[in-house]
Nucleic acid binder design. Structure first.
Lengths: 137, 137
DNA sequence: CCTTGACTTGGAGTTACCTCCAGGTGATAG
DNA sequence: CTATCACCTGGAGGTAACTCCAAGTCAAGG
């Protein structure tokens, strides 16, 4: 029988595939309360709703920038608590945004250092090659 | 008696202070071969030379951008081995530079997401305040 | 009916990177 | 002379974030 309802939901393997997080990690995130409990099918299998998937995406995004799980858990907890926590949530995100800005700045400085150092090596290698050519003459 | 030789060297506490790495961390870095063995005074106390200090600074810089210890140990090892390893060292730094570039890019995207989200919260809070004012009338 | 394979759970194990500790030494201040 | 203090060593402990495992369930295919 054809299912007339459009089925958006996904099993854990699909979510894992799509967001590059292992199934174990997804289950782990749920365990620690980072993602609220996902609905299970009759046979107990996770059935990620669109909302769940958006949460995974959000978490994946912030985690990949290095925000600590602890902070994200706290934030997601506040989200669950509803409108009264908007102020607190904003404060968390603002703080993390500022920290991230600082981290990016530091990394850019380091990148510069690395970049110059690579260039120094490249010219050193060129000089060495030239020396070899002269020796061969 | 006055010491006529200019004394640049530092004890571990001073290096720790100056670079924001704990003494334990400095000793740890030496243990794992990230910093070659630092000279000891007669009574066995570390006496960081200018070169040692430059190494600490370099490591601190790269670590703060998230380069893994393993890679840095490998690199410092090659440095110890002398000129023959210049090519290999360049390759390591180039790879790490490229990885870092990618990480910074990803973080900038996340920063944008965070930034927008903070703004959404800020306007939401403003709207809420306005509502309260109206209710009070 | 039986096997296969993707899923479930609770709990244990792993990795990277420190951080702490116990027990000991040597220089300096009271 | 003794107490304090910064340092030493080797080794154990801690934390964050996964990652793996054993034992079990269920649906689908042969």
């Amino acid at each position: 029988m054809i299912d007339y309802f459009y089925e958006v939901n996904m099993k854990i393997a699909e979510v894992s595939e799509r967001y590059g997080l292992s199934s174990d990690t997804l289950r782990y995130y749920e365990r620690i309360g980072l993602i609220p409990r996902v609905q299970r099918s009759d046979s107990g299998i996770r059935d990620y709703s669109e909302l769940d998937i958006r949460r995974v995406e959000f978490v994946k995004c912030l985690r990949s920038a290095g925000l600590p799980l602890e902070v994200l858990v706290e934030y997601m907890d506040l989200v669950q608590q509803g409108d009264a926590t908007i102020e607190a949530r904003k404060d968390i995100l603002r703080e993390q945004r500022d920290l991230l800005t600082a981290r990016i700045l530091a990394m850019q400085k380091t990148l510069e250092v690395l970049h110059r150092k690579v260039q120094v090596y490249e010219t050193a290698i060129l000089a060495k090659e030239k020396q070899i050519v002269q020796t061969e003459k």
